[in-house]
Nucleic acid binder design. Structure first.
Length: 422
RNA sequence: GGAGGGGUGGCUGAGCGGUUGAAAGCGGCGGUCUUGAAAACCGUUAGUGGGGUAACUCACUCGGGGGUUCGAAUCCCUUCCCCUCCGCCA
C-alpha cells in the first residue's frame, strides 16, 4: 500500500508509475474521494469538538446538581448529526482503502521501463551450459526412467500438476532443502523459521496476495484460512502490527515450506515435468530492514541466492525485471534464471525483491528510531531456491549418456554419500 | 466440542459512566553523580488521521464491529482471540 499523503501530493508520479506498469487504475477518482473525505472530516471534527466541550459542561452542572436539561436537549440533535456524518465518512474511507489496496507499488527509479519480459535486462551470468556428447533428455524422461518421479500416480492421488517423488528423487528433494537451509543459517546468518503453512486473510492482505489475487490461492471452505503460496506470507507476517527496535535491524529469516498455487491462468504453460506444480517446496529468505539499507540488502540477498546455484555448479543468469513485468508489491526485482537443457534456455528459479514499505504499511510493521519517531521498515524476500526447479535443473544438467545422474558434490553428504543416481 | 476467566500504552498492570489518553512499575531516552561503568536520584517517553507557513491545534484509538447515553476503557449486544478445567486427539 502506498502512503495516502504521498499519492495526494505526487499524483503525477503515481500516474506515471501506473502507466509504466501498464495498470489501468484511475487515480482521479481516488483524488476526488480523498478531497471529499477531508472536507467532511473538517466539518464533523468541528462538531465533535463542540460536543466534547458541551458534554464537559453538562458533567459539571450535574455534579453541582444544577439543571442541564436545555443543553442535553440541544446535544441530542448534534449527536444525531454527528452519527449521520460519521456513516458518510466511513463509507468514503472504506472506498478509499479498497482503492489503496489495489494500487501496485511504485517501481524504484533504477528499474528499466518496459512492457513485458522481453524488456527485462540481463545483469550478469555465471558458469556455462554443459556440453553433452549425446542428445540430452528432459527431466521428466530422466526422472521416470530412473523411477524417481511418478507423474501418473501424483495425478491419481490429487490431480494434474501434482507429482510423486520416490526413492532418490524424494531424498534429493530433502537433501536440497537441508543444504540450502544450512547454507543460509550457517554461512549467511539467517535465522531459521518453520511457520504455519495455513494463514488467515489478514496475513494474505498484508503481503499483497489479497484482495487482488485470491484466485491464485487455495482456500479452506469452513475457515478463514488459506494455504500459503510462498513462505514470504507467514514469515513477513511474523511482525505484523509490531514496532521493532532499531538495533535489531536488519532481521534476516529463512524458512523451508511447501507452497501451494492454483496456477489459474497458466493453462498450457510448462505442462510437462515439475516446473509448474500446484504444490512445490521452497526455501525462502526474508529481511526486515531500515529504509536506507534496503537496496544494499537486496544485493546481498540476491548474492545469497546465487551462491546456492554456484555451489551446485548450475549455470544461471541474473535478470532485472522491467516495470511491466514487476510483481504487484515489488519496487524492484531480480530474477535468477537457471540453464535448462530441455528448454534450450533459462528458467526462473528465484525471485528476489525489495518491497520497500509497501508491505510494511499494509502489515503495519514499524521500528522506533533513536529519535523516538516510528517509521515503516522495508521488507525484502527472495527464493533461495525453489526446490523442485532446482531438482529438475540438476537432473537435466548432470545427466549422463546412460540415463544416470551425477549428484553435485555439495549434496552428497546429505544423500548418504551417494554420488550417482542410476 | 462443553464449562468458566480474560483481552488496556514498547512490556507488566490499575481503572465508582463525566479533566482517565489513561495511575503505578519495568523498559527506553536525556541529565546529575563517577576517572569510567554500575547503583542511586531528577526529568522525559503512545499511535493514527485532519487543520495551520509555523508555534500550535482538533478528532479518533483501551481486541474488532454495533448499540444505550448529552457523554463509554467503564453498561448492553455481537464477533474474534487468549488462558484454565473437562472431552477428543497426532
Amino acid at each position: 500500500m502506498l502512503d495516502v499523503r504521498f499519492v495526494r501530493e505526487n499524483a503525477d508520479v503515481v500516474k506515471m508509475a501506473l502507466k509504466n506498469r501498464r495498470s489501468n487504475i484511475d487515480l482521479s477518482r481516488f483524488l476526488e474521494l480523498d478531497k471529499e473525505r477531508r472536507r467532511l472530516l473538517v466539518e464533523v471534527e468541528g462538531l465533535k469538538s463542540t460536543r466534547n466541550i458541551i458534554s464537559e459542561e453538562i458533567g459539571k452542572l450535574k455534579r453541582e446538581k444544577r439543571d442541564a436539561e436545555e443543553k442535553v436537549f440541544s446535544m441530542r440533535k448534534l449527536s444525531k448529526k454527528i452519527k449521520d456524518m460519521d456513516i458518510k465518512v466511513n463509507e468514503i474511507e472504506s472506498k478509499l482503502s479498497n482503492f489503496m489496496l489495489e494500487i501496485p507499488n511504485i517501481p524504484h527509479s533504477s528499474v528499466p521501463v518496459g512492457v513485458d519480459e522481453n524488456d527485462n535486462k540481463t545483469i550478469r551470468s555465471w558458469g556455462e551450459s554443459p556440453e553433452f556428447g549425446f542428445e540430452p533428455q528432459a527431466h521428466w524422461d530422466i526422472g521416470v526412467n530412473l523411477d524417481i518421479l511418478d507423474f501418473k500416480r501424483g495425478v491419481k492421488i490429487a490431480e494434474s500438476r501434482f507429482t510423486l517423488l520416490k526413492g532418490f528423487g524424494a531424498k534429493l528433494e530433502r537433501a536440497l532443502i537441508n543444504f540450502m537451509l544450512d547454507l543460509h543459517t550457517d554461512e549467511h546468518s539467517y535465522t531459521e523459521i518453520f511457520p504455519p503453512v495455513l494463514v488467515n486473510s489478514k496475513s494474505m492482505m498484508s503481503t499483497g496476495q489479497l484482495p487482488k489475487f485470491g484466485a491464485e490461492l487455495y482456500k479452506c471452505a469452513d475457515d478463514d484460512l488459506y494455504l500459503i503460496p510462498t513462505a514470504e506470507v507467514p514469515v513477513t507476517n511474523i511482525y505484523r502490527g509490531e514496532i521493532l527496535k532499531e538495533k535489531d535491524l536488519p532481521l534476516k529469516y529463512t524458512a523451508y515450506t511447501p507452497c501451494f498455487r492454483r496456477e489459474a491462468g497458466a493453462a498450457g504453460k510448462d505442462t510437462r515435468g515439475i516446473i509448474r506444480q500446484h504444490q512445490f517446496n521452497k526455501v525462502e529468505m526474508v529481511k526486515f530492514t531500515k529504509p536506507e539499507e534496503s537496496y544494499d540488502e537486496l544485493e546481498k540477498l540476491t548474492n545469497n541466492a546465487e551462491e546456492v546455484l554456484q555451489k551446485l555448479g548450475l549455470h544461471y543468469r541474473v535478470i532485472e525485471l522491467c516495470t511491466g513485468d514487476l510483481g504487484f508489491s515489488a519496487a524492484k526485482t531480480y530474477d535468477l534464471e537457471v540453464w535448462m537443457p530441455s528448454y534450450e534456455g533459462y528458467k526462473e528459479i528465484s525471485s528476489c525483491s525489495n518491497f520497500e514499505d509497501f508491505q510494511a504499511r499494509r502489515a503495519s510493521i514499524r521500528y522506533r528510531m533513536k529519535s523516538k519517531k516510528v517509521r515503516f521498515v522495508h521488507t525484502l524476500n527472495g527464493s533461495g531456491l525453489a526446490i523442485g526447479r532446482t531438482l529438475a535443473a540438476i537432473l537435466e544438467n548432470y545427466q549422463q549418456e546412460d540415463g544416470s545422474v551425477i549428484v553435485p558434490e555439495v549434496l552428497r553428504s546429505y544423500m548418504g554419500g551417494v554420488e550417482k543416481i542410476e
